[in-house]
Design a protein around this nucleic acid. Structure first.
Lengths: 113, 113
DNA sequence: GTGTTATATTCGAAGTTTCGAATATTGATC
DNA sequence: GATCAATATTCGAAACTTCGAATATAACAC
């Protein structure tokens, strides 16, 4: 039982363990959006967006609602937003590491070029 | 910048995206423990524990302190515990899914046997 | 029906994570 | 220094994740 609970928690974290999926959830902070609107705002490939949406759906982080041609997504439970808010405080507290990540990315970019 | 921040968040979630690592952080809820104590409580392989601890260290979720022969680990920021507490509420709210996970695991077990 | 738009799924290649077995390091004790 | 105990690292195989390209499905409009 303990194990199942931990697996469930791990799955939840896994679902959020990708920058694109974080971005999707953040876009849905203020309410529902169609898949198309999310794709447009994030400027990502349609197939890729759809795959990430599928992950978030599978883990019940998002709900969806079909309206004719379109599918509207929304965050299923406000507690998820609450988790992200706490994370925001966490990031403020550890901004120096965020900056280190930023620098590392920048450096990697320079090497790549 | 937005991207780096999202990467940082994703890394954080990734770090917690494993049942063993969740278990480790939960063990450290009440305070620090030596690596050996964690291994003993969780009943896992020494090398495996050490690898998971390395992941949690790398993402700055845990701190460590050397005392002679031993290394004591602790959760670096109480906000992390706070995140887990919110998660706990989340899991209570979605207990039915936890149970579904439980049943799925049980089924997989039966097939494996 | 045909065509069009919105979204989902499948495929395969490249990259990442996980594990245990083996080995290395570090500090304490004799 | 030799030995022992605690912890970390390295290695390679297996499993999982990610991507874009291609294809499928579904709903609407004509």
């Amino acid at each position: 039982m303990q194990d199942a609970l931990r697996q469930f928690k791990a799955d939840f974290f896994q679902a959020l363990a990708h920058p694109t999926r974080i971005a999707i959830v953040e876009q849905l902070r203020e309410g529902e959006l169609s898949a198309g609107a999310i794709i447009e705002r994030l400027g990502i490939e349609q197939a890729n967006a759809s795959q990430h949406l599928a992950v978030l759906r599978a883990k019940n982080i998002l709900m969806n609602r079909k309206a004719g041609n379109q599918v509207f997504y929304s965050v299923r439970d406000p507690l998820i937003i609450e988790v992200l808010d706490i994370m925001r405080r966490y990031f403020h507290a550890h901004m120096s590491e965020v900056l280190a990540t930023l620098k590392a990315i920048d450096k990697a970019d320079k090497i790549r070029r």
